[in-house]
Simulated assay, not measured.
Amino acid sequence: MIVKDTPTLHLSIYIIAFLIGLPNAVLAFCCCIRKIRSKPLPIDIIMLNLVISDLFFLTFLPVKMKEAADNMVWNMPDILCRLNLFLFLTPINGSCHFLAAISTERYVCVAFPVKYKNPKRITYTILICIAIWMFILVTAVFTYMAAYGGSNNDTNYTEPQQCYTNFTTSQLQDVLKIRLALVAVFFCIPLFICCFCYINTIRILLKLPLIKRCRRLRAIGLALETLLVFAICFGPYNASHIVGYITQENPKWRMHTLTLTTLHACFDVIIFYCISYEMRLAFKICEKGFIQFYVRIKSCF
């Protein structure tokens, strides 16, 4: 049973994700650019790509807000619906791969510190990020062709028009097959990589007596935060792909899981904080500024 206030709930989650995610993503983007200009590390390159993926996602989020405000009926131009696949769904898949790349980079840094300092690693990391983007875009193109290819004559338009939902029978079969493949490629494999890398990274750090406690805590926090993103944001969404393939239909609760993916923009803020010293420094400066502003306002009264 679908709750009548579901669109309001979706809109609330979109607004929260936008207000929290966008300013922090912009801040993280500025920190990454500044660090890359001075003394870049492989982790900075990967984090920059994750931030760019989040910015694409957050830039398109107001369109999803409008959809939720219209009671989940698509009253906007069809071109925006088609862009939804590239600017809303594609960054979700990209985030999974960039999170896996971050976990791999952290593991290499701890397990192979000598090889990590190789200057060529910057070049390798850039090539890996380019390969991830190309793979994501190619996958999105195949998904687009499956969703919007062929004839729409037998699509059921008796119901209110919705974006990426009104498929013909043949389109739906193709989309469900691709979604099932996406579960393996964009969820299961990145999740396995993250679990393997972070478990071994934490195990190595716990054995090193000279490692500072704060660094160990950040590593544990980064691992837990990444697993939470997969469990809360991406897990239910990919489960809907599996259920949809088994039942050969779009699950009615799929839209709820899609809304949950929006929260990854909020969780990524903590990931940026654990990774980047510049981000932590920026947070401290902002915190100090807010405290001073609060003290001045309070003194006026």
Score class of each variant (00 low, 15 high):
P40A: 11
C163I: 05
H97M: 12
H256Y: 14
Y237E: 11
A265S: 15
A28P: 03
I211Q: 12
I128F: 05
Q162E: 02
R179L: 12
K212I: 02
Q173S: 15
L11A: 13
A17P: 04
T247D: 11
I297G: 03
L191W: 07
I36H: 11
G21R: 10
P62D: 00
C214D: 13
R215G: 00
C195D: 01
I36C: 09
P251D: 02
A68L: 04
I270E: 01
I132M: 07
A68I: 01
C81P: 01
R121L: 10
L217F: 06
L11Y: 09
F112V: 03
N250S: 06
A265W: 03
G149S: 08
F142L: 12
E105G: 04
I189W: 10
F272G: 06
Q171F: 08
R121N: 15
L222H: 11
L263M: 15
C188V: 13
A131V: 01
E105A: 12
G149W: 10
N24H: 11
S240T: 14
A231M: 08
I130F: 09
R280W: 05
F86D: 04
C300K: 13
I130G: 01
F267L: 15
C96S: 15
L227G: 06
V175P: 07
I242W: 08
I102E: 04
P119S: 10
L260Q: 04
E105Y: 04
F86P: 05
S103D: 10
F186M: 08
F192C: 10
A231Q: 02
D54Q: 11
T262L: 08
K39P: 01
S299Q: 13
I13E: 10
I128G: 00
A25H: 11
T259S: 08
A100S: 15
C129D: 04
V185K: 09
F230K: 02
L58C: 03
S38K: 12
C96N: 12
I92A: 11
K115T: 09
Y157I: 07
L80T: 06
L217W: 05
H97Y: 12
V138N: 07
F293I: 05
R218S: 08
N156Y: 06
E105S: 14
C274E: 10
A147K: 02
V243P: 00
F267M: 13
K39V: 09
Q248N: 13
K117Y: 01
V295K: 15
T201Q: 06
C109A: 15
L61R: 02
Y294N: 05
L281Q: 12
L83M: 13
I189F: 14
A146C: 07
L80Q: 04
A223N: 02
C109V: 01
K177P: 00
I52K: 12
Y164E: 05
A111K: 13
G21M: 05
K252A: 12
M47V: 03
N250W: 08
